[in-house]
Design a protein around this nucleic acid. Structure first.
Lengths: 138, 138
DNA sequence: CAGGATCCCGCTAGATACTG
DNA sequence: CAGTATCTAGCGGGATCCTG
């Protein structure tokens, strides 16, 4: 497929984008994907045993405890626009909508899952470090 | 060292924290590290050939183009408090301050670097997807 | 040089109400 | 069920001024 070919070509002609530069588009993209809800949605959509997994809107809302409808919809739209997830609406009695990761979303999910796991794994260390820091500066 | 041992112990007793839950502390930690400046700072501090690399405040400010003093200082404080970076002040004529990654910060830097690279590598694809989406919905 | 302290604007997240 | 629309409070974050 053309996607893979183009990706390989960009890998060769590297340094085309640099997020360290303020004007670079990748800086804004980095800002978009550096988001709590993006991380959790991508993790949720790949949570199954296999690689990808389609979830309905209400299922996502249940998994991401505490997310508002606005943020969930807004984040999903953004991810869909960027080609990270696909939205499929099935015209049943009440309409059924499901979201699934694309290949691009799948590739980012790998890192997002690692970041989420890192936060969960190192929570105790961070908590301890904060206590140390706070008592030392108090 | 004790850090590695504790980390391994937590790896065995997994599912102690879950970022999917709103009340879980790891949700807030995930929110903190899911930040543009956090990503860029961690990347910058490990940018050299080796593993870690100490940088001065002004060097960081120059690398992260467009960052305000407030955000840079604020983010560095947060990272220091969480034990991801160490701050070293050398009492020279004008004081010299350098920041360096801790082992904990080093472990997170691996994923941050991957995320930053992902954004730069897939920028073209995302841009193309946006055009497709926008024209299709226009 | 490396910040601390303020002011203040924008915008975004959250709550609420409504709909195909 | 899966959203859209509207409103508002709160704060993230930039700009500016000051300092050890």
């Amino acid at each position: 497929m053309a996607t893979t070919t183009a990706a390989q070509k960009r890998a060769r002609t590297k340094a085309e984008y640099d997020a360290f530069l303020a004007a670079c588009p990748s800086r804004k993209l980095l800002d978009r994907i550096s988001d709590k809800w993006v991380t959790l949605i991508l993790c949720a959509l790949g949570d199954g045993d296999g690689e990808s997994r389609a979830l309905r809107y209400s299922e996502l809302a249940r998994m991401l405890a505490g997310v508002s409808q606005k943020m969930l919809t807004q984040t999903l739209r953004s991810l869909e626009r960027d080609g990270l997830v696909t939205r499929t609406a099935t015209p049943t009695v009440p309409v059924t909508v499901s979201y699934e990761l694309t290949d691009l979303g799948l590739s980012l999910r790998l890192m997002m899952r690692a970041v989420k796991t890192w936060a969960e794994t190192n929570m105790d260390d961070v908590l301890a470090n904060r206590v140390t820091y706070d008592t030392r500066t108090a």
